[in-house]
Each structure stands twice: as structure tokens, then as C-alpha cells.
């Protein structure tokens, strides 16, 4: 099966590919945010969703957030996404 992330990683100039296996975040036109490899939600609010990743935390800010899908390691957020920050 075609693996979108694997294809992109092969194009990238990174010496240590293992480093790229921690998480993937895809922002689709500021309306959908797809996350792979999250380690649990920390904040769920209408204007902010935060979740843990390996060695850090991601905060997504915006409006009218809905968690469209939440599984053990994937997350799909729908809403108006203004900012995605990694701490």
C-alpha cells in the first residue's frame, strides 16, 4: 500500500531516519488536522486542543474544534485552525 509519510521521508535529507518515526502532523487547509503518534489529549476546548507527543507537547489553537476521531495513536481535529505549536 502506498505510504504517504514514508514517501516524504525518503525524499527528505535526514541522516537518521529513525528520528522521523515519532509523530506526524498534517494540516489540511487549516480545516483539518491529522495527527499520528500522539500520546494522549491534555486539553480539549472549543478554541484549543492540546496533546502529548514523544518528548514534547503540541497545542492547536483556533475555533469550533471537534475531535472527529480519536484512537489510541491517531487524532483528527476539525475546525478553524489558526496555530499549531510544538513545545
Amino acid at each position: 500500500m502506498f505510504n504517504f509519510f514514508k514517501e516524504i521521508k525518503e525524499k527528505g535529507l535526514v541522516n537518521n531516519p529513525e528520528f522521523l518515526n515519532e509523530y506526524n502532523i498534517v494540516n489540511m487547509s487549516g480545516k483539518l488536522l491529522y495527527v499520528e503518534g500522539h500520546l494522549g489529549l491534555t486539553i480539549i476546548a472549543k478554541d484549543m486542543i492540546a496533546f502529548k507527543i514523544k518528548k514534547g507537547r503540541v497545542v492547536v489553537e483556533g475555533n469550533d474544534f471537534i475531535v472527529k476521531e480519536l484512537t489510541e495513536n491517531t487524532l483528527l481535529i476539525q475546525g478553524s485552525i489558526k496555530k499549531t505549536e510544538i513545545f
Binding site: G40, A45, V67, K68
Partner: peptide, 16 residues
Amino acid sequence: SFNNISKSINVYNLKK
């Protein structure tokens, strides 16, 4: 709690 649920169950359309 949602993290606990999502470990074994898929959660959809979660709205706070």
C-alpha cells in the same frame, strides 16, 4: 478519561 477510552475504543465527533 477520553485518553483511556481511546486506548481500546474509537471516539468520534468529540465536542467540548
